[in-house]
């Protein structure tokens, strides 16, 4: 399966179908999700209207983590099978993941102010997400600093794979750390306790975010491949022109 789609032409054919499909689905689902979360769902009995921040916040946090998982899988595939497409995917996923992480932190902070009375609380989950942002930034900085494309690909893959082990340990250690000094005001959202009228808009928004991320990743992958092909064509044309000039003179 993997090697089947690592052929650039087959990938291009697939991307031509999937890009408009994902894009359309993302837009429709985002529209429905926004309508459900902001107009068609009731305010929370405890949190009032501020519950609506959850519908943009929770899917962003989920995408921040899911995209890191995707980055690690793409890096693993590149590291083991050396598919150039997997590395290109890792390269375009990283900035997207960082943006979703910033979005999650930002909306979380906006939600925290009315709920906990503070913009930032050093609780386990928020701290882990902040560390996740640092991991994304380190990955992008390393890739940007390496000029040789192959070195950047291989070194980035190693760092991304080490990062997933690290993030698991960070999760446990930060839980332990915050249990030493647990603030009492944290509101917990455990899956089953959430009411159906809130679960629906949340689920729609989560699916919409997923398609949005898939759309953006495929779009950027394809435009990167096109850019590379355009550069090769231009180089070929310059070469032909030079040969013609030599032949004329």
């Amino acid at each position: 399966m993997l090697s089947y789609f690592s052929n650039p032409q087959r990938f291009d054919q697939l991307a031509r179908v999937l890009i408009p499909l994902f894009g359309g689905l993302a837009l429709i689902l985002l529209g429905v999700g926004v309508w459900l979360s902001f107009f068609a769902s009731p305010p929370d009995y405890q949190q009032g209207e501020t519950i609506r921040i959850m519908y943009v916040h929770v899917p962003a946090a989920y995408m921040a983590m899911a995209l890191y998982a995707a980055l690690a899988v793409a890096s693993f595939v590149y590291f083991v099978w050396r598919h150039a497409l997997a590395d290109a995917a890792a390269e375009v996923i990283a900035p997207l993941g960082a943006v979703f992480t910033i979005l999650a932190l930002f909306t979380g902070s906006l939600w925290g102010k009315p709920m906990w009375g503070t913009w930032w609380e050093w609780d386990a989950r928020m701290t882990s997400v902040l560390v996740l942002l640092l991991v994304y930034l380190g990955y992008m900085a390393l890739r940007a600093a390496l000029e040789d494309a192959q070195q950047a690909a291989r070194t980035g893959a190693i760092l991304a794979m080490a990062g997933i082990i690290n993030l698991v340990i960070v999760k446990f250690s930060v839980d332990w750390w915050s249990s030493l000094h647990q603030p009492a005001s944290v509101i917990r959202f455990d899956g089953p306790t959430i009411h159906a009228s809130q679960l629906w808009p949340l689920a729609v928004m989560a699916v919409a975010y997923t398609f949005l991320a898939g759309w953006l990743v495929l779009y950027r992958l394809r435009s990167q491949a096109l850019r590379r092909r355009a550069r090769t064509l231009q180089r070929q044309r310059e070469q032909v022109a030079r040969q013609l000039e030599e032949a004329v003179s």
Partner: peptide, 29 residues
């Protein structure tokens, strides 16, 4: 990872700090 990159100190710090979170938590704890 960052060997031989010019002014690698900052990059090394950025890569290493998230990985040092657990040991910092436990040692300080």
């Amino acid at each position: 990872l960052a060997a031989g990159i010019r002014r690698s100190g900052l990059l090394i710090a950025l890569i290493a700090t998230p990985m040092m979170v657990p040991v910092l938590i436990f040692a300080a704890g």
